[in-house]
């Protein structure tokens, strides 16, 4: 008796949400969900299969997945050591360094693209030497897409891995040292397994961000179908010529995003503890 009435009272208390909060909350929810639903409503379901397997979509999708994966690989190879340096390195001005690393996170991607052009463009600070000495030109190439995506996505990985590293007990590394393990062996066999969940979460986020990259990519790599036209670029272009195709491409991206969310649900979204 008592427990049930207590339960009901608790339920009523939880249900009594003030209107001042309830109304904007529902509007906010609708604001986030309705556009996505609209995408599904307006989808050209009859011709969906044809559109989905058309050459343009396939080409953009393949390019997107390949570039995002390569960019993620670059981020892993460079970002994990960078995260280690930020978390464990005994260097001055670590706070400033950490802030610098997160700049691309808040920077408008177009600005990132412009910055990349100024440095790696054919007349750029480094780019002119690459061109003159090695004949390498990065802008408006598939490699350029990878670079633009990595530039924008790396902070996601670095922040996730650094957080995991700072949460990991460094005394395990000391224990490994007393057993004769070098720092590199300790990192591979002790530290990395301990932070694996953080690395996986960071990698998935990084990949998702790279996949959706638009601003820096179109600025630095331009729009050449089959070479630099990734899915987001294709969506934007198709919107003017073939809205149906734009919707199909968008749905594909939406599905990919939801898959990423679901795969991360346990590790990232719902476990602050």
């Amino acid at each position: 008796m008592t427990t049930r009435s207590a339960g009901r009272r608790r339920a009523r208390r939880r249900g009594r949400l003030p209107l001042v909060l309830a109304v904007p909350a529902l509007i906010g929810l609708a604001f986030l969900v309705v556009p996505l639903a609209g995408l599904l409503v307006r989808a050209p379901w009859s011709t969906l299969a044809d559109q989905l397997f058309s050459e343009e979509v396939g080409q953009a999708l393949l390019l997107s997945v390949v570039c995002a994966s390569l960019a993620t690989l670059v981020c892993l190879v460079l970002g994990v050591p960078l995260a280690w340096l930020l978390a464990r390195g005994d260097l001055p001005g670590r706070g400033v360094l950490r802030a610098l690393v997160t700049v691309p996170l808040v920077l408008p991607p177009v600005v990132g693209g412009v910055a990349l052009l100024l440095v790696l463009g054919r007349r750029g600070i480094i780019g002119q030497h690459l061109d003159a000495w090695f004949g390498i030109s990065l802008p408006f190439t598939t490699a350029g897409v990878v670079i633009a995506e990595a530039f924008v996505a790396m902070p996601f990985l670095v922040i996730a891995v650094e957080g995991a590293l700072r949460g990991a007990d460094p005394r395990y590394e000391e224990a490994a040292a007393t057993l004769g393990a070098s720092r590199w062996l300790t990192f591979r066999r002790v530290t990395l397994p301990a932070i694996a969940p953080g690395v996986v979460a960071g990698t998935v986020l990084c990949w998702a961000r790279a996949l959706g990259e638009f601003g820096a990519t179109i600025t630095f790599a331009g729009n050449f179908p089959g070479k630099t036209t990734t899915m987001p670029l294709a969506v934007y272009l198709a919107l003017e010529t073939d809205p149906g195709a734009a919707i199909v491409l968008s749905i594909v991206l939406l599905l990919l995003s939801v898959t990423v969310l679901v795969s991360l649900r346990d590790r990232w979204i719902s476990s602050p503890a």
């Binding site: 007990d169 395990y172 490994a176 040292a177 007393t178 057993l179 070098s182 066999r189 397994p193």
Partner: peptide, 17 residues
């Protein structure tokens, strides 16, 4: 450095991997 000393340590909370 630690890794080059012929020592063995048992830590208070063991620190098993």
């Amino acid at each position: 450095p630690t890794e080059h000393r012929p020592v063995g340590v048992v830590f208070q909370d063991y620190l098993l991997f």
